[in-house]
């Protein structure tokens, strides 16, 4: 095989507009047109949940309506959603025997110093997001996403190297969100008689505790997804 042949074969994805693709393009264009007409003729004054959500806000214990929706009105949904994240991790560990990325020690002091300074800063910002979430835009998911960034940076610059496999505390962290949610739900079932029905005085505290646990879980989940399997020490190229 000539080198040019290999290069052509391995080159890139082939995106020429062939006849079947033209057909698919025509079909999707028709779909877009149908959806666009539907959107343009959509009645303007449909029933909204917004007034209901905003009016019940004083009883929810938080001032940010989005947090109220996530943790109060749709509490079960968020609980199951945190469980879905756990399932994603189980899926990754089931199909990938080894990590996609490996812990790579920084080979320049610039990177090491950068990470050393940025990591605490990001953790503080994640906490700030969580705290802000009760009253202003922010919350567990935003803080968790920032913590995921912390995890990625941690792996990418090898702040700390585990042995093969994941340490116990990481597994604990991954389960913390679901655990806190379930414990709160069951506890509240006995206290108030409703699943995830918070007593008005302690509502904010309970929400913050659940959100905190969920935030750590989300952060750990995102970092583990980035590793994509069981981590190894420095791998050969």
């Amino acid at each position: 095989m000539q080198t040019s042949d290999i290069d052509r074969a391995l080159q890139t994805d082939d995106t020429r507009l062939t006849r079947p693709r033209l057909f698919v393009l025509a079909l999707t264009t028709a779909l877009i047109a149908a959806l666009a007409t539907a959107a343009l003729t959509f009645p303007d004054n449909v029933g909204r949940l917004a007034p209901l959500a905003l009016d019940s806000l004083p009883r929810s214990g938080v001032l940010n309506p989005v947090t109220a929706v996530l943790l109060n009105y749709r509490g079960y949904d968020t609980l199951l959603e945190v469980a879905v994240l756990l399932l994603a991790i189980v899926g990754v560990w089931a199909i990938a025997p080894t990590a996609r990325v490996w812990f790579k020690t920084p080979d320049t002091p610039v990177l090491a110093t950068f990470v050393r300074l940025l990591l605490p800063l990001m953790i503080v910002v994640a906490g700030y997001m969580l705290w802000l979430g009760a009253d202003e835009p922010g919350g567990a998911f935003q803080g968790g996403a920032v913590l995921g960034g912390v995890g990625v940076l941690w792996v990418a610059a090898a702040v700390w190297l585990p042995r093969r496999g994941h340490p116990f505390w990481l597994r604990l962290l991954l389960g913390a969100g679901v655990a806190a949610f379930v414990i709160a739900a069951v506890g509240l079932l006995f206290l108030t008689g409703g699943l995830l029905q918070y007593p008005p005085e302690q509502a904010k505290t309970v929400i913050l505790v659940i959100e905190g646990a969920a935030m750590f879980s989300i952060g750990a989940t995102l970092a583990v997804l980035f590793i994509g399997g069981y981590p190894r020490r420095e791998e050969e190229k």
């Binding site: 940010n64 989005v66 996609r100 990325v101 997001m129 835009p137 922010g138 919350g139 998911f141 935003q142 996403a145 920032v146 995921g148 960034g149 990625v152 990418a156 995102l222 997804l225 980035f226 994509g228």
Partner: peptide
């Protein structure tokens, strides 16, 4: 709220995932 989540996830984390997978 959504912008906060998207700013962290949409470009940062998804980008990191895609880049590392591509090189793998």
């Amino acid at each position: 709220d959504v912008a906060l989540a998207e700013a962290a996830v949409g470009s940062g984390l998804t980008g990191a995932l895609l880049l590392s997978t591509l090189s793998a």
